[in-house]
């Protein structure tokens, strides 16, 4: 059962990603990206990371993708003209991508991986993540808050009307 779910999710994740970067209509592209993100959330559940899976759906597939859609609709970019790439370029890029993938894949999975470790109790639960965030990772957590603030200020500065 788990294997079946995994195979289906892997297929949809891959299809979603490929369609997201190749589709000419950006709105459809974003929707395919959402498909990709939700499929990945399935894997996070299978990999004992329920909290990250929930965030993936709420924050990533929800909030961030809505932001993308919002901008595309606001600017009416659905049919942004693209330069037509020739057949040769398409073939070359597929070959290049294939070589890149094989190199990466070979290095990542070539040998026998060490055996999986036993999972501690409550692994990946909200509680265990929260404790780690507020103890070991307190400084990065605070850094993230500054980062979000500065991103917000920056976005306002770049888009507000008028000068100083």
């Amino acid at each position: 059962m788990e294997t079946l779910v995994g195979i289906v999710a892997a297929a949809t994740a891959l299809i979603g990603a490929i369609a997201a970067v190749t589709h000419r209509n950006a709105v459809v592209g974003v929707l395919f990206l959402v498909l990709n993100l939700v499929s990945l959330a399935v894997f996070y559940v299978l990999l004992s990371a329920p909290f990250i899976a929930a965030l993936q759906v709420i924050l990533y597939a929800g909030a961030i993708m809505v932001l993308f859609l919002f901008i595309i609709m606001l600017l009416d970019l659905r049919r942004e003209e693209e330069r037509e790439s020739g057949l040769l370029q398409k073939v070359l890029s597929v070959i290049g991508g294939g070589v890149f993938f094989l190199l990466l894949w070979g290095a990542a999975t070539g040998g026998a991986a060490p055996a999986a470790a036993e999972l501690p109790e409550h692994f990946g639960s909200v509680e265990s993540i929260a404790v780690a965030l507020f103890t070991t990772y307190l400084i990065p957590f605070e850094t993230i808050s500054v980062l979000l603030l500065v991103a917000m200020v920056g976005a306002v500065l770049l888009t507000r009307k008028g000068g100083r």
Binding site: P140, V146, V150, G154, A155, L158
Partner: peptide, 23 residues
């Protein structure tokens, strides 16, 4: 590596904005 990654982001994101301030 977490600190290096977040430090890099914290230095980069303001710079992305600053480069475009003369709108």
């Amino acid at each position: 590596l977490v600190g290096i990654f977040l430090g890099l982001e914290l230095l980069s994101i303001p710079l992305y904005v600053m480069a475009g301030l003369v709108r």
